[in-house]
Design a protein around this nucleic acid. Structure first.
Length: 258
DNA sequence: ATGGTAGCGCTGCTA
């Protein structure tokens, strides 16, 4: 099974790129973030025409998460359920079952700046994600949680750690929450295969950062123990960050021997 | 040089 995650930064603006990418990358499952669409605005026919069904959770304009699958997607649920969402009303979590694997597409809040209310609620949101996993899932089941975590787990995931001192995405509190997910039972599928630094998934549109290799590794595919030893291949598709109207994120692909 | 771009939607916010 090939599973991918991609913050598309508007599925409306990115639709041609996403459809083109699906046809050549051939993932079985694509988790998307920042679709910026309401559920009834999703171009489901375009996906169905190339063999994918779409599970979408969005409120329009901002945020929005989705799972496109060509191996089916069932048991949909969105949000934290009974748990209080620190970003109530914002579509940042959707989960379904695809070919026997539980899959969640997450868009962790950005947090903007340390010391702000949005940052504090980002930390709470990450706490709530762990509580949600504890309440409704098990590290013993085949589970993939992937998406834009807006956390660079280590300094080697940042193009210039000194430039990010005191910034979001790299703070101890954020990294502690990311580590708590690993401690719960997840493995970072990409890191399991690649130990190199300067392997990024996001580059700011501004100042030509992509071409200067100034990026962050903030998009992740987390897999539980039953899947950990089945990860055979992973790739950040930097070609998708090039060309006409790219997203500011590249897709991350992982192959599972299933 | 402390900037820059992109998306949404129409004013400035969000990233």
């Amino acid at each position: 099974m090939r599973i991918a995650t991609w913050n598309v930064n508007s599925l409306k603006a990115r639709l041609p790129r996403v459809l083109e990418w699906l046809e050549y990358a051939q993932p079985d499952v694509l988790c998307m973030q920042e679709t910026k669409l309401a559920d009834d605005a999703v171009p489901v026919m375009d996906f169905e025409a190339i063999g994918y069904t779409v599970l979408h959770h969005g409120e329009g304009r901002w945020n929005g998460v989705a799972i496109a699958s060509r191996v089916g997607v069932t048991e949909d649920r969105s949000g934290f359920g009974e748990l209080v969402d620190p970003y109530e009303g914002e579509a940042r979590l959707v989960a379904g079952t695809c070919g026997g694997v539980r899959v969640a597409s997450v868009y962790v809040p950005n947090g903007r700046a340390l010391g702000t209310d949005t940052y504090e609620r980002k930390l709470e949101w990450l706490d709530r994600l762990l509580e949600w996993l504890d309440a409704s899932h098990s590290p013993d089941e085949p589970l993939v949680v992937c998406g834009d975590f807006n956390v660079a787990p280590e300094d080697r995931d940042v193009y210039d750690p000194r430039a990010f001192e005191g910034a979001t995405h790299v703070s101890d509190a954020e990294r502690k929450r990311y580590q708590a997910l690993l401690d719960w039972g997840f493995t970072d599928a990409f890191r399991q295969l690649y130990d190199d630094d300067r392997l990024y998934t996001w580059w700011d549109y501004r100042a030509g950062n992509f071409h200067k290799h100034k990026g962050l590794r903030i998009d992740h595919v987390l897999v539980t123990a039953p899947l950990r030893d089945r990860v055979t291949w992973a790739l950040v598709d930097r070609n998708a960050r090039k060309g006409e109207k790219p997203s500011d994120h590249a897709p991350l692909l992982v192959d599972l021997a299933l």
